[in-house]
Design a protein around this nucleic acid. Structure first.
Lengths: 215, 215
DNA sequence: CACCACTATTGGCACTCTGCCAGTAAGCGA
DNA sequence: TCGCTTACTGGCAGAGTGCCAATAGTGGTG
């Protein structure tokens, strides 16, 4: 009774095109729910393909997830400072610290969920590859911050550590502003702009001084 | 050929005793590997019982994990400040900020893996119950810090936010010290002791000033 | 001391999910 | 039009979890 032929049952896309389509679908789902709560079946259905195809393109679920996270930390969301401050290294065109912070806040504000997923992607556990991706992203950001603040001359391990510490501070302050609402945007800005310079001035000397005890 | 009777095949423990035994086993495994990488079969085997029993005591895997995390953040590991500073609220017996930081560092140093698992327990994803446990623990710690620093009088949302921000800073600095080794213990101490007072002095006034813009 | 009731504990069934791969068919080039 | 490449499907195997009926330690009771 069924008509034997009524056109193609599925369309055959170009390799990269299909891959991008699946990746986009996965990104949507993974930014909404954590790794374990999203099944490959669901991704496949949402993308309009079968589960097997995901395997064909990405190998396994975890690899697909890694790809999504890479995308998230690689583009504007976390890497604003990269995009912004990389390139013009000359003192003139270099944006000020205030500008960098302001831009970063704007980007995060408009991409809240993506940002939250990205920074809490350690979610899936202390996986080596995942850890590396996130850590490298933060490290890169730290480098940019050091440059913008003009700390390049004294780029010691201690300075890097301090800037990374500030990163932790910044993430938490951002949550206070966007999630818990205990800070206004203006207040958060005051903190983010002022904290690092203050710590560099007041604490860095002391830290470098106690360097001798190094083992 | 087998001897039909050769004593009990398994021992019957008291409810709480068996529960505690399973919990301890689970804690060991979960602090070594992330949630998804530990199966209930493995926990059961390590505890010398069958998988079904875990279900009998905890309902499901997730609930067991929650119990483990509760235990971790509830006792010394993260809650040092609680244990230490709670109780004596009188100004005399109150420990100094320096002492609190020093004690905290010692505890974390000796319980590294437990601490690391605890703070990155968000691992399993943005689960409501999990989030609450961790957030409440950090909030409690913030309260203690406020008390020790004598900031009780001006316990505004802004102060809480600032202290939470410091919490993020402290976690990151601790990682720089224990994991990445870019700071010595002495250097980390300098940062942890000095950062919060510096920020309170230099930034808090500005934050409170821009309060009018609140919406 | 034998028996019984109580419940801790087991063992296995049903279901979901992931990894894998052999077969199928879309669509381009000759 | 035919044939060849390969995107895509469909289903099987294994692992893990939730659940529960049946089993068997064990303390209490007569």
């Amino acid at each position: 009774m069924t008509v034997p032929k009524a056109g193609p049952r599925w369309s055959r896309l170009e390799h990269d095109e299909r891959r991008e389509q699946i990746l986009a679908t996965a990104r949507t789902l993974f930014t909404q729910r954590p790794y374990g709560a999203v099944s490959t079946v669901e991704i496949a259905e949402a993308a309009g393909v079968t589960r097997g195809l995901i395997h064909h393109y990405f190998g396994n679920k975890r690899a697909l997830y890694l790809e999504v996270v890479k995308e998230l930390v690689g583009s504007p969301v976390l890497g604003v400072l990269n995009a912004l401050t990389a390139g013009p290294t000359d003192a003139d065109t270099m944006p000020t610290w205030e500008d960098s912070v302001a831009l970063w806040m704007d980007v995060v504000e408009t991409n809240q969920e993506a940002w939250l997923s990205a920074i809490s992607a350690g979610e899936t556990g202390r996986d080596r590859a995942m850890h590396d991706i996130l850590d490298e992203s933060r490290e890169r950001t730290a480098t940019q911050v050091i440059t913008v603040l003009g700390l390049d001359e004294r780029r010691t391990p201690e300075v890097r550590a301090l800037v990374r510490g500030f990163g932790g501070f910044a993430e938490e302050i951002t949550r206070e502003w966007l999630q818990r609402g205990r800070l206004t945007k203006a207040q958060a800005r005051v903190l983010l702009v002022g904290a690092l310079p203050a710590m560099v001035d007041e604490l860095l000397p002391g830290v470098l001084a106690s360097r001798k005890g190094r083992r």
